[in-house]
Design a protein around this nucleic acid. Structure first.
Length: 584
RNA sequence: GGUUCCGUAGCUCAGUUGGACAGAGCAACAGCCUUCUAAGCUGUGGGUCGCGCGUUCGAAUCGCGCCGGAAUCACCA
């Protein structure tokens, strides 16, 4: 339409893309905005005159529009209130408002996340991984993708043997039952013990005059761990039995942590079953001349034409390395499921690895190589700097969740909330609020950025936090309980004020946010949108009397808006994996 | 040194494909609970968007060059 307006006014034909239309900023009057600057060369008059001419034309030619204004070269068009009202009475009622249905034709997305090691418990970094993976899955599902969540457990290797060895030598037969420790924590304890003993032996050797580097490779405990790994690979029954027992402890522990975090998987892969994969593919690549063999028999890929160096794919003894495995698992998964895309939620420390993986697969001529996507996320750092397991500055996942919940409890008691509820009801809400605070804190940050986690500050429940949004929801539910048995329909006679229109406009942003969030695999868009919406609602709540407006029509209109906000907050928080309490 | 990413208020973070005076929260100070939940609301102070050049009617956003920080560049996974 704008194109015609320009043609009628100044008799020039312009391209569609020269007309820029965007949503009007919330602090200006209007609903959508036309930027007139690009048109000035055609109109040959001031931005104001151009805008007015365009605005008048638009008004004359559209019934949807009720007015316009021009501010500094921005033409703001106002959509008639009647039109908003029709929207409000229409699809906002849909149960899964804003969601694209998943059907047979939907793209298949495989998403791998979590991928823990079985030698120690989960920490804060894993929490970011799990929350991201879970939330991105939900968001992609909401925007019409068929999603399959998979976990790849790193259950073998020298680090696993370290815990096993230490337990064998010094464990005195301790089990989760005898110690009352969570399985993963018990195993983690022995991993730390191994490290301490290893360090001590290095120091001792250095004291005796050994060069440090040599001491690091020749410390007796390390040799024993290597020997244990060798036995494991040769299927030594004793080692395998120990391995299975200790891993099962860890799995019990992980299961608990996952449940608490609210994450789940459709399928779990174990590296002990996949670590030999990829070898045949690499050999085939060698045969086709894609890779080359060194004199010692090891196989390499030359990535110099991509600006990278050479990468090992098979060791001289013919065994697989990490890269080989990923080539194998990707290949296997594609053959099994024929995914349309495969997302790996893995920390940015492995950017290089995934860069190489994509190139290697491409070199081998797999068309699906470009369907792999590395969702790389930044490190979680503490105010004092990086988390170091050696220095004991790791924030344990279970401890952190405990702390968040107990803070929610004391905070709530201090505020004198929930006094008339039973202990059990309160516990549920404390859990929801504590976890909500943690999840929101992590997910509101752009995944690719490193983030700082201050244990003291992040238990704050005021401001831009999960509990604030949960609180908003509880308020909404409270309003609905009091006024909403039968929500009166609005007939359109009642004028909508600026705040109401502004809220309705925000509601219609939601589907767009979901799609954008899905496209960029970035839950923080949803998180920040929900905060804006919640803040807007709280202002509305404070300034307007929802249940005792001027007339029944107005009450009905406001209740409709409140109800819709409630639906969106609930559904949006669900996309973040955050529960919303009915009251708090 | 190569590659990738980041740099916005004292602190933690937003800022959709370039657009209206750069926004929140926390912290500080000052107000608001006889009315639908005060985990709330209102106000005040606080910025050379790391630095410079360029493209553009217009740059926090795009390009180039610096400066600062992170990750990675293992026959570990």
């Amino acid at each position: 339409m704008a194109v015609e307006a320009v043609r009628d006014a100044w008799s020039v034909n312009i391209q569609e893309d020269q007309v820029q239309i965007q949503k009007t900023r919330r602090d200006f009057e209007g609903d959508f905005t036309l930027v007139v600057f690009p048109l000035l060369r055609h109109s040959k008059c001031s931005p104001e005159e151009t805008g007015n001419a365009m605005g008048q034309y638009m008004i004359d030619h559209s019934e949807m529009l009720s007015g316009y204004n021009v501010i500094k070269g921005f033409l703001n068009m106002v959509v008639a209130q009647q039109y908003w009202r029709e929207l409000l009475d229409g699809d906002l009622r849909a149960p899964h408002y804003g969601f694209t249905p998943v059907d047979a034709g939907s793209p298949d997305v495989m998403i791998e996340f979590s991928s823990p090691n079985t030698n120690k418990p989960l920490h804060l970094g894993h929490i970011r991984n799990n929350l991201l993976g879970h939330s991105v899955s939900k968001i992609m599902e909401a925007s019409g993708n068929k999603v399959m969540k998979v976990n790849l457990v790193n259950d073998r290797g020298i680090h696993i043997c370290k815990s096993m060895l230490s337990w064998q030598e010094e464990g005195n037969g301790e089990t989760p039952e005898t110690t009352g420790l969570k399985g993963d924590h018990l195993v983690g304890k022995y991993y730390v013990q191994f490290d301490q003993k290893y360090k001590a032996q290095i120091e001792a050797l250095v004291g005796e005059g050994t060069i440090r580097k040599e001491a690091e490779t020749s410390a007796p405990v390390l040799k024993k761990a290597r020997e244990m790994l060798r036995k494991w690979e040769m299927d030594d029954p004793e080692v395998r039995a120990l391995w299975e027992m200790m891993n099962s402890w860890v799995y019990d522990g992980f299961k608990e942590t996952y449940k608490r975090l609210g994450v789940s998987f459709d399928k779990t892969y174990y590296e002990s079953e996949t670590y030999k994969l990829g070898k045949e593919i690499v050999l085939k690549g060698l045969k086709e001349g894609v890779f080359y063999k060194k004199e010692d028999g090891s196989i390499w890929a030359n990535l110099e034409d991509e600006g990278l160096d050479h990468k090992l794919l098979l060791r001289a003894d013919g065994t697989s390395v990490y890269m080989t495995q990923d080539v194998g698992t990707a290949h296997q998964r594609y053959n099994e499921s024929g995914f349309d895309s495969h997302i790996y939620v893995v920390g940015n420390e492995q950017n290089y690895h995934f860069q190489v993986l994509a190139i290697v697969l491409k070199k081998m001529g797999f068309v699906w190589a470009e369907k792999l996507f590395h969702l790389s996320y930044g490190m979680v750092e503490l105010p004092e700097g990086k988390m170091k397991s050696r220095e004991g500055t790791v924030v344990d996942a279970d401890d952190l969740m405990d702390e968040m919940e107990s803070t929610a409890r004391s905070m709530s008691e201090e505020l004198g909330k929930l006094e008339e509820y039973t202990g059990e009801e309160k516990d549920i809400i404390y859990r929801q609020v504590g976890m909500g605070a943690l999840k929101y804190f992590i997910l509101k940050v752009d995944p690719k950025k490193n983030m700082t986690f201050d244990p003291r500050e992040s238990v704050d429940f005021n401001g831009n936090t999960g509990p604030f949004i949960q609180y908003t929801y509880a308020r909404i539910r409270s309003v609905m309980r009091k006024g909403g048995e039968e929500i009166p329909r609005s007939t359109g006679d009642t004028p909508m004020n600026v705040k109401e229109v502004s809220l309705i406009r925000m509601l219609y942003d939601y589907p767009e946010i979901i799609n954008e969030s899905s496209r960029t695999m970035n839950p923080s868009l949803v998180a920040n949108y929900l905060y804006d919406l919640a803040k807007e609602f709280n202002q509305f709540y404070h300034d307007y009397s929802i249940l005792s407006a001027d007339n029944q029509e107005q009450v009905g209109l406001r209740l409709r808006i409140v109800e819709a906000i409630g639906q969106i907050v609930k559904s949006g928080m669900d996309l973040l994996g955050i529960e919303v309490p009915e009251r708090m």
